[in-house]
Design a protein around this nucleic acid. Sequence first.
DNA 1: TAATTTGATATATCATACAAATATGTAGAT
DNA 2: ATCTACATATTTGTATGATATATCAAATTA
Lengths: 222, 222
Amino acid sequence: MNKKSLVEQTEKKLLAYLNEADTKAGSPFPTEKELGEELGVSRTVVREALNRLKAMGIIDSRTNRGSVVASPDILHLMEKAIVPQILDQETLKEIFELRLVLEVGMSDLVFMRTTRTDLVELHKIVEEESEKNGSIFDVDHEVAFHGKLYELTGNSTLSRLQSLLLPSFQYVYDNHLIQHSEDTAFMSHKDLIHELENGTAESFRNGMRKHLENHYSRLFAS
Amino acid sequence: MNKKSLVEQTEKKLLAYLNEADTKAGSPFPTEKELGEELGVSRTVVREALNRLKAMGIIDSRTNRGSVVASPDILHLMEKAIVPQILDQETLKEIFELRLVLEVGMSDLVFMRTTRTDLVELHKIVEEESEKNGSIFDVDHEVAFHGKLYELTGNSTLSRLQSLLLPSFQYVYDNHLIQHSEDTAFMSHKDLIHELENGTAESFRNGMRKHLENHYSRLFAS
DNA sequence: TAATTTGATATATCATACAAATATGTAGAT
DNA sequence: ATCTACATATTTGTATGATATATCAAATTA
């Protein structure tokens, strides 16, 4: 009784075809007419199915040139699909956890790849931070500092993943879904930089974990 | 020269509308006819644009009920799209790094959420591991053990991200892009479980980092 | 009141037509 | 024989109308 729509079925068949066939980027695709006859559906349905693949960046099409297999950029896909406002609470929470996981986990990459020049920039960010409002929690500064850290990993996939998830964090903060307790940020940004300069990979990693302690404790409290 | 197709333009407008409007899951969407009149395009174009949103899981539609905003699954897209993808070396490397980042970073989640029952299962996995081939590196065991850890985070987004990236790891292993040095995996799976049972969150985290030392050192060597 | 029928409405699919872009074939000039 | 200009065919892009199907809501009936 599982009667998915024709379009969905067709889309599935097309994806299956892509998997079976020895396709690589640039491989040609049958014409809409052929596909329609082959699969026994109208051209409309074929078109809609193809459209979905196009939306996902799996194929490209141009007038009269037919469709060809493309090499999709997965992260770009996610960028389009993420509309923070319509993500449910549970997903937002998981994304927030993912952020914590990423930041603690990337410590080693940051530690190994940070150069002297990078340290200067980090210091600058922290100073601007303390100039303005010393105690009040500011999302922009938070983003500036941590965003820089992502950048320092030298891993563009990781970095893009962060900017991808950023709107969700923003949303979480804006709606006070996660409140920042300002009492004792035992490990400040300044302290973190200090570890980065004088500590070890391990001490920096554990320092990062401490820096995020507020978030973690709230996570495990609920 | 913004000569994108009408469908793409329309899709963009619809997404913009979603971002502007105060939409949440379940919010109704104008009918195809209305949208067509509003945007000055035919119903065909509207349908194809809506179809794309449907493919991305951003909206749901059922006959006569119109379309409603859905709570999209951010990974769903990637899961569908990653199949035929041909990743270049650089991206593969970055994905591998991402794995390391995730596994070290998720240590705290694992540590806090692992139950006694989970420990039993982990022990079982490790024993099956040592029964077969004690010294030879086996991808399946690796996946079984680490996959279990992801599961223990209780974060389904994280867990799915792993299974999503898995094919890439497999590829990396298969092509010996990253060779596993079998000499002294100082921190074995068994040792890790021991930390999980008797250690602290920090010791487990650092143990996980040690366990992945081989990969890390190879990473930083090149 | 509860169940059923009916009607209105919106999406799902089909069929067709034409427009626009591109590839291909053809004729003529050189 | 080769090149160019033009005509033709092919394929996707867009538009329109028609029919099928599912759903809700109102009307009807028991």
